[in-house]
Computed example of a mutant assay.
Amino acid sequence: MFPAEQTLQLRALDPEDNRIETSAGIFVVEGSAFDEGLEAVAIDSWGTSSCALDAYSAGDVADLGDGETFTLNADGTYIWQGDDDQISGRAQRFFFTATIPPDFTLSNYDQVLLDEKNSEGMAKAFFNTLTVVIPATIILILIAAFAAYALAWMKFPGRALLVATVVGLLVVPLQLALIPLLTFHVGAMELLTSVMGTVDEDSKLTSVNWFGNWFGMSEGEKIAGKGYFGAWLAHTGFGLPLAIYLLRHYMVGLPRDIIENASVDGATEFQIFTKIILPLSFPALASFAIFQFLWTWNDLLVALVFLIDSSGNTTVMTKQIVELLGTRGGDWEILATSAFVSIAVPLLVFFMMQKYLVRGLLAGSVK
């Protein structure tokens, strides 16, 4: 546990009720920064502007111009001094940075989990994240497993070229493809909407044909460009090259005799894949599923581009944690607490599938 620095904003006492005339038209307002129920702490630095929070040290006199001064001491007491016009109207604003001694408390968890203002948002973000992570992981593993088996054991023209393409896609940065992929996705959704009926200027259906009725669409609906479907496809597409590469490498190392014997006995490729390859490849599948789950759970960039909209109904955990920081971003203790809460599910998944992770990582390392 370490001391924490916290920046607070306060105003001096109302000059109309608290100023005292000293001599020759000089008025003074005296008070304490801790009169408003704040816990008394040592003040390190302070300022009178949000652009310079640490312009002065404790005890320094700030010249506000035309003889008006403000002094803030280390114990929180302050003196605001000036003439009749200066010590009137709205009270002087000041900021100070205080060192708070370490204290063991669960108040941050109470604020994150039980505070009505935050708990509803965290709960919604939690289920939104699960809605993204689980399908994105399952879809990726299914497609990658089929593709890896085809590239490992099925002979067809162009297989070597496909393997080389998969390896080449490993070096494509995710950030490079985000905007083009989003543009393509939005265009595809608009095209799909137009196929379902007549579309107005806002891309909303004014009439629905049989195709739209088959999909359960109704007049006035619009297939949004952003949504869970786009996030699933994005995570699947960005994870496929590595998944196919690793799973193919694992499947190539499986005993050839088992597969050839099954083929001689009349098993089809699909039967070989489902009854032999998948059970033997479960450690590798589980290992990559864990990694994909963790990557998707901790993702913010793809969610911002493909999922989160202005309504806030699709906010994920990583975005909600950022919102808890506040406008100034100084509540780092809330960030640490929220991050600890957010890793609960990944830790649970890891410990449940730990043995498969180790087996999958060590597969092929020993001859």
Rank of each mutant, 00 (worst) to 15 (best):
A4L: 14
Q9E: 15
L13G: 12
N18L: 01
A24K: 14
I26G: 01
E30Y: 12
V41T: 15
A42R: 14
I43L: 08
I43Y: 05
D44L: 14
S45W: 08
W46M: 06
W46C: 09
S50R: 13
C51A: 15
C51I: 15
A52D: 13
Y56F: 12
G59Y: 05
D60T: 04
D60C: 08
D63N: 15
D63H: 12
D66F: 05
D66C: 08
F70P: 01
T71A: 04
L72G: 02
N73P: 10
N73G: 07
D75H: 03
Y78P: 11
Y78V: 06
I79A: 11
Q81E: 15
D85F: 12
Q86S: 12
G89C: 08
G89P: 03
R93V: 15
F94T: 04
F96S: 02
P102D: 08
Q111C: 04
L113Q: 07
D115I: 06
E116C: 07
G121R: 06
F126P: 08
N128A: 01
T131P: 00
T131Q: 12
V132Q: 01
A136N: 04
A136E: 07
L140G: 04
A144G: 03
A145D: 11
A145I: 05
A147S: 14
K155F: 15
K155I: 14
R159Y: 05
T165N: 14
P173E: 01
Q175W: 05
Q175E: 11
I179N: 01
G187W: 00
V195R: 09
V195Q: 10
T198K: 06
V199G: 02
D200Y: 03
E201K: 09
D202V: 09
T206Y: 03
G212H: 03
F215K: 03
G216P: 05
G225H: 04
K226I: 02
A231N: 05
W232P: 00
A234K: 07
T236G: 02
G237Y: 00
G239Y: 03
L240Q: 06
P241Y: 04
I244K: 07
L246Q: 13
L246H: 06
L254E: 10
D257R: 14
D257Y: 11
E260L: 10
F270Y: 13
F270K: 11
F273D: 11
I276Y: 05
L280Y: 11
P283F: 01
A284I: 11
A289Q: 00
L301T: 08
G312N: 03
G312Y: 02
Q320I: 02
Q320Y: 09
L324T: 10
R328P: 12
G330N: 12
E333F: 08
T337C: 10
V345T: 05
L347H: 10
F350E: 01
F351R: 06
F351M: 12
M352C: 13
Q354C: 06
K355V: 11
V358D: 09
V358W: 00
R359K: 14
L361E: 08
S365H: 10
V366P: 04
